[in-house]
Design a protein around this nucleic acid. Structure first.
Length: 437
RNA sequence: UCCUCAGUAGCUCAAUGGUAGAGCAUUCGGCUGUUAACCGAAGGGUUGUAGGUUCGAGUCCUACCUGAGGAGCCA
């Protein structure tokens, strides 16, 4: 058996004519009396193999012919270019070793036919093996790698933030509470931003990347209760710097996916031209202009209100690439946003709305750097000042203008993949009514 | 939390208030180029739960459970 070199299916084209073996699982099997066509997947791809009865030992042929879906198997043989095959290559079987046969008493539940959402997500641990889910998670991986490469090569230092946090920003109604030993309660983080402001003053440019938890009873195709967010923060930066970095990041990320994940995008039947349009510069409009556009398009929005999901969709329809909306009314934004100097009723915040109606993927802006103003803001929002002493310290000891943003990874994946629902963008989604498997 | 819709075989779905069915999956048989292969046969059911209306309920009514879509809130 040592004559056969182990290869991945993805590299099949580099090994035509060589004796090789692939180790994987039976994805599907078509058979026709004296010839069988097992399709094998190994995590790197799928390939159709061909077994001819006359050219194989009787026991090997029979074992393969009666193999059940998702049984693990090692196939040995030779790779061959084949125009008729999907992917362009086919493997002629010379031998096989069945590692574990799925029993017919408990067959693999996910058949090649259609299934409902509830069933598939109950079987999520197996669902991940299917072509479509595999493609999505490969693209997710590519996006995360691109995000990290972007920040790492632009002078940012990764400094991760705590998951357990004391009750702090934006009230406790959307926080998951956790018992922390005897008498103390802590909460699962909603954002690393406040901590990022501390690390930015230590490192200049930082980012954190980790899970985030929101106990919102949101039941829509855009929400998870546990999701991953990347949050950069920069010292000596203003709103324009934040917008520039957000735009560069998105362009870089989309470019990487187009460059390295064409196959996966094709599996998802993604319209590539929509992604190719995502180039600098992005349109930039103010909140005031956004409200005008929305009113013209029939929305009932009034100045001072936040955008609803349909408003975001209406806005993004106006553009072929993401649109940056800045200078929101201060009242709808969090306490830490810096007010516009010439017009304090608006905050120096920016949201990036993805194209094709996917809504907000990035939210951020410039933070309050003045001590007295921040104290006032904390009071105005009825927050307990004692909880923010360390945060106020940052305005005592060398305060500088600074800012950053957060990007939800799953929303970015959903948008780039062109998905209907965010639940497919993470291996094991946590939603309002789903915590299993 | 609110609004709308849906729960029937392992899965996807049919079934005027009148004997619960098909395709896929599984098993058996056939087929040397199949592409969600195909052809023949078999097994597989407390119709989400609890009440009610009716001679008779998968079907009509009530409550509950589970799920889906949407709203609000957000990334």
């Amino acid at each position: 058996m040592s004559d056969y070199r182990r290869i991945t299916i993805a590299s099949a084209g580099q090994h035509t004519g060589e004796p090789v073996e692939i180790a994987g699982w039976l994805y599907n099997l078509r058979k026709s009396g004296k010839i069988i066509f097992p399709i094998i997947r190994d995590g790197s791809g799928t390939i159709q193999c061909v077994g001819v009865k006359a050219q194989l030992p009787e026991d090997v042929f029979e074992a393969l012919k009666n193999l059940t879906q998702e049984s693990s198997v090692i196939i040995r043989g030779k790779m061959r270019a084949e125009a008729r095959a999907q992917g362009g290559y086919e493997m002629d079987i010379e031998g096989a070793e069945i590692v574990q046969r799925v029993s017919e008493e408990h067959p693999y539940p996910i058949t090649p036919k259609e299934h409902g959402v509830e069933f598939l997500f109950d079987q999520r641990h197996l669902h991940l093996r299917s072509r479509r889910q595999h493609a999505i998670l490969k693209i997710r991986h590519e996006i995360i790698k691109a995000v990290r490469d972007y920040f790492d090569s632009n002078g940012f230092t990764l400094v991760d933030c705590p998951i357990f946090t004391p009750a702090a920003c934006e009230g406790t109604t959307t926080l998951f509470e956790v018992d922390y030993f005897e008498d103390e309660k802590v909460y699962l983080t909603q954002s690393g931003q406040l901590y990022n402001e501390a690390t930015a003053a230590a490192f200049g440019k930082t980012y954190c990347f980790g899970p985030t938890f929101r106990a919102e009873k949101s039941k829509t195709r855009r929400h998870l209760t546990e999701f991953w967010m990347v949050e950069p923060e920069m010292a000596y930066a203003d709103l324009e710097d934040v917008k520039r970095v957000a735009e560069e990041l998105i362009v870089f990320m989309v470019g990487r996916v187009l460059e390295n994940r064409k196959t996966e995008l094709a599996t998802l039947e993604r319209d590539i031209t929509k992604l190719e349009a995502i180039k600098s510069p992005f349109p930039r409009i103010s909140y005031d202009e956004a409200v005008e556009i929305l009113k013209r398009k029939g929305s009932e929005i009034e100045w001072g209100g936040d955008f609803g999901g349909t408003d975001e969709t209406l806005l993004s329809e106006e553009f072929d690439r993401p649109v940056m909306v800045d200078r929101y009314p201060a009242a709808v934004k969090a306490f830490y946003f810096q007010p516009a100097p010439e017009r304090p009723e608006v905050a120096l915040g920016v949201d990036v709305l993805a194209s094709e109606g996917y809504g907000e993927v990035i939210g951020g802006g410039q933070r309050v750097h003045d001590y007295d103003l921040l104290v006032q803001r904390i009071k105005d929002h009825n927050l307990p000042p004692e909880a923010f002493q360390w945060y106020l310290d940052l305005r005592r000891f060398g305060s500088v203008p600074h800012g950053g943003f957060g990007m939800g990874i799953e929303r970015a994946v959903s948008w780039i993949c062109g998905l209907e629902h965010i639940r497919e963008t993470i291996a094991f989604p946590r939603m309002l009514y789903r915590t299993r498997p």
